[in-house]
Nucleic acid binder design. Structure first.
Lengths: 356, 356
DNA sequence: TTGTATGCGTTATCAG
DNA sequence: CTGATAACGCATACAA
């Protein structure tokens, strides 16, 4: 250890910059920069200075300043997730999958939920912070939030929509969705095959995917000639309590349904709990089939028959388009990817009991 | 509209900067800057130029560049959340609460989960991106991730730990926790009052809070003179499947427990489902009490007796210390806030059935 | 009242 | 091989 080996720590209380390292090493700051990112550089530095600078950088505890890098145009390695309602278990599961998958790409996730009291200022905020991000995933349907759509349109970063419903209104960004029609028809067909004849539907209003599921349900019953009472279609908030409310409405006029198709697992699980609270046994007195296959179904008593949504695969597809190999150039038609759901039969569905 | 009214849009394909606005308005960039943040400025600009510049900024669609601002030292309005396991429903609920509360402060949340395959590089990443943030909340116990702790220590931003367990090892940052002892004793006392005598415990290993709960449970049984069989304490992963495994183990040697204290709701819900799959009725054959009162309990059949964790309040306290009015100066002892949990009795607990 | 100049921490392009 | 120097977009002390 030479007499010069002990170097002056720059005044603690301030992060160590390249300048500090350069000063301590007696070289130019640009030299430090070159050494510290030697990856794709054409110029080479002498092993001697490299060693020295690296050692000093380490000793001083130098850490690159991501914001300064970002200002220079480097990617921020941040993915923005604009989510309609983070309290919705479905979107929670989505964020979980997104966060996990994003990490595989080296990205982290910035949450911006626009839900509920989404007044103008907040929508703007969500968009402003978006400029921190390398890509934005819009999770869920944001119809009615006209301003958000417009803000997104003016953004410089790629935007990918997931679960936006399938309407083709010339959206300027890629969309990833699911074949709701196939999913719902599988669910309804399953109930019909079990022998149910009074099948109800509960869903939520104003949400693209939900509306498609409702239409698919009505279409299927129509085709198969099964009668559907008007009051056996209930539209409620997509919550546990919403489902409770829906069940009350469905049972108001006898005979009630022997089976219910719920447009989401949240509603299905809420239905299941509400049925229990009313003393109805599932599936003996009431069959329930959900949609999404969220992780919460693993704790459901009884196990929930549902339509599996390939959440991880869909998120992965979104990442590929946003920051991965499938990046969309922005030319021509925005790509649309549609995934196929599949029925998962568990214990919440059975043949209608004979006493009906 | 004068002949000069149509101004040249700066070459689309690049965000509009203050310079663009300045050029279009024929003023200096600094003037634009002054006008655009007129808040606490001592200097005044002429109403004429102000009008003009504002109009042009609007016309050009100027948006401030948050990264440039951040480089100048402005807060990023980002809160980092380092979470041990985002698939854990408890932490999912925490993130939900955090995201909601943070918005009230004008902040968004950056997720960085360090879980599972947390190799060195990733830990560093988590810390690097941290410099984007104005504060960091560490959710859950990270013992064993020694490097993370060290990295956090060197950080320039305030760090607040939540649910780290209560050990007082001279941590250099504020901690917010819950009184595990009181919570577990309330749960156990409830079962004892119902008449249970064979009470088991299941929890997870290596987690600060979990260990405290276990110790509290053992201590309580000891005090009240209730016998505890060695194999009636099961340590498993904090998952639905972990609980399933634990139940198998608990029932291996007759007589099995008539009641189980689970160290988390995830375990309790898993237990409930596993009991159902084995044909055990809850609470008739088996009483279950959980810990946390996560939102998923609202869908549980039957309703889960549990110990309520004041998640929103705790998150709020963390935000107050990190970015709110209770900011910690860094001097003296780091503050510790301990919240009190409370028992919520629902349907998963009852007196042991007489056939036992 | 407004313009000029400087710096925040990097990276990149020049010269030397 | 290395050292100046100029951006990146913005805020601000200082000069006019």
């Amino acid at each position: 250890m030479t007499s010069r080996a002990r170097r002056v720590r720059p005044p603690a209380g301030r992060p160590v910059t390249m300048n500090d390292v350069a000063a301590a090493a007696g070289v130019a700051q640009s030299t430090v920069s070159r050494i510290l990112n030697d990856n794709a550089l054409s110029v080479r530095v002498s092993p001697a200075t490299r060693e020295r600078v690296l050692a000093i950088a380490d000793e001083l505890g130098y850490r690159p300043h991501p914001i300064a890098r970002a200002l220079r145009g480097a990617p921020t390695m941040l993915i923005g997730a604009i989510v309609r309602d983070i309290t919705d278990w479905f979107f929670a599961a989505t964020i979980e999958a997104l966060s996990s998958r994003a990490r595989a790409y080296g990205y982290s996730v910035v949450l911006a939920h626009a839900s509920a009291a989404a007044d103008e200022a907040l929508r703007l905020t969500a968009v402003l912070e978006a400029r921190h991000c390398d890509a934005i995933l819009v999770l869920g349907d944001f119809r009615g939030e006209g301003r958000l759509a417009e803000d997104l349109r003016n953004l410089r970063v790629p935007v990918i929509g997931l679960w936006q419903g399938s309407e083709e209104r010339g959206r300027p960004f890629p969309i990833i969705g699911v074949d709701n029609r196939t999913g719902i028809r599988a669910a309804a067909a399953h109930l019909v095959e079990l022998g149910h004849e009074r099948i109800a539907y509960i869903g939520a209003d104003r949400l693209g995917d939900m509306e498609e599921r409702q239409a698919a349900f009505l279409g299927y019953l129509d085709e198969t000639g099964i009668e559907l009472r008007q009051d056996h279609v209930q539209l409620v908030p997509n919550t546990i309590d919403g489902a409770r409310f829906a069940l009350s409405a469905l049972l108001e006029r006898a005979p009630g349904p022997t089976a219910i198709v719920a447009a989401s697992d949240v509603l299905a699980l809420g239905l299941n709990r509400a049925a229990f609270d009313r003393g109805l046994r599932v599936p003996d007195d009431l069959s329930i089939v959900g949609f999404d296959d969220i992780p919460q179904t693993a704790a459901s008593v009884p196990g929930l028959t549902t339509v599996r949504m390939p959440i991880p695969e869909m998120v992965e597809a979104g990442l590929k388009i946003g920051v991965g190999g499938d990046r969309w150039s922005g030319d021509g038609r925005a790509p649309r990817v549609v995934f196929q759901p599949s029925l998962v039969v568990r214990q919440s569905t059975a043949a209608p009991s004979s006493r009906d």
